[in-house]
Design a binder for these strands. Structure first.
Lengths: 202, 202
DNA sequence: TAATATGCGGAGGTATCCTCCGTTTTCAAG
DNA sequence: CTTGAAAACGGAGGATACCTCCGCATATTA
């Protein structure tokens, strides 16, 4: 009952722990880039010159590791959202952000499983990145909808899913072009819906 | 050099061979449905009560097996295309076919890798199904474009990719609804582009 | 029925995943 | 500085998967 403090939810990591955590992320980044998303965790541990047990303690699942690897880039994605909504009118901000999202996808080539984790869940997924991305997207979408220029009768994440589909399933080199075109088609499609709704209402 | 005949490209399979081939496909269908795309091939062989060697002889790669499993449904998809383009005007035919495609995806839940194989390649992929699907899509798209109602400034397969993205990356139960909405958004997006092009030209 | 082409089966080598637990290191209280 | 417990390390090892290889069994044909 005295429960003096209760170890803080994120207690300070021991120095060596933190060091090795970083080593692992760095190694993972290297190895994933080199061998693709299915690189073996054993390999990563070896590359980091750490035991496999250490890897598993820090990152209980493959996805946990992957998320850590890309958290930094995700932050960029998020800060981009804030800035755009300050500088552009809502629909343009959304459009630009989706383009940034395409760039973001570029750094995840072939890691479709990881993406699934990020984009996939309404679920109780462990990753906070997922929630943040969803939050940023929702903000942009809401603002854009409020202008009356577009309508969003689907889950906003579906936009990302469609774009990711184009990016991921495409073997071609110019998938990025395709994905950007897709951004415009999606926004035009949503705009048309809105106009039609207006017409029907009158 | 006498080269009397050269075994015909598809020589008649021995009776037991054909029988076991079917057993394997059936087992694979079962197991994939139950365990998802990453079900083990050992497991499938066990389920079919056949040796693993037999499985590998008939299907040298995982994808070969998967393709065999779904070839039947793919045929349905293809015949659907023919019928629709006979019965509906082009844009509607395309729309309906994309909706059928959504249904088709339902039978592939979680098999994103298999899908990648099917939808992915401009490449020299072994599968003929891939080429046929692309062919059907191209036909529908071309007809629709010729009406002037829509424009297709992207690779037609990108439509399927976007839809598959929504279907695959969505964990929710109502992904099918999302995917169907996406069909309409895409077509409206393409229609809008065409109108805009018309306006700009005048 | 005999010969042979075809198909079958599964042992086994390699690789990955993940757990478990004895050993080592850190860190701060005394 | 000493010391001891909490924290972290490391990697052996069991389970499972992939895929190959080749001796054995069976279907087919003459």
């Amino acid at each position: 009952m005295t429960d003096v403090e209760g170890p803080s939810p994120t207690r300070k990591l021991r120095a060596d722990g933190e060091r090795n955590r970083l080593r692992l992320i760095k190694a993972a980044k290297r190895v994933f880039a080199e061998k693709g998303a299915s690189a073996s965790l054993d390999q990563i541990a070896r590359d980091a010159e750490l035991g496999i047990g250490t890897l598993y303690r820090h990152f209980p699942t493959r996805d946990a590791l992957v998320e850590a690897v890309y958290r930094q880039e995700t932050e960029a994605l998020l800060s981009g959202a804030a800035q755009l909504s300050r500088e552009l009118e809502p629909v343009s901000a959304l459009r630009e952000w989706l383009r940034i999202f395409v760039e973001y996808l570029a750094s995840k080539q072939g890691m479709s499983e990881a993406l699934k984790t990020l984009i996939g869940g309404t679920e109780t997924l462990y990753g906070e990145s997922s929630a943040k991305v969803r939050g940023a997207l929702d903000t942009l979408v809401t603002a854009a909808v409020e202008t009356g220029e577009i309508r969003m009768h689907m889950e906003p994440l579906d936009l990302l899913r469609a774009i990711a589909g184009v990016a991921n399933l495409s073997p071609a080199q110019n998938w990025k072009r395709s994905a950007v075109l897709m951004v415009d088609v999606l926004l035009d499609g949503l705009r048309t819906e809105a106009r039609r709704a207006d017409l029907e209402r009158s």
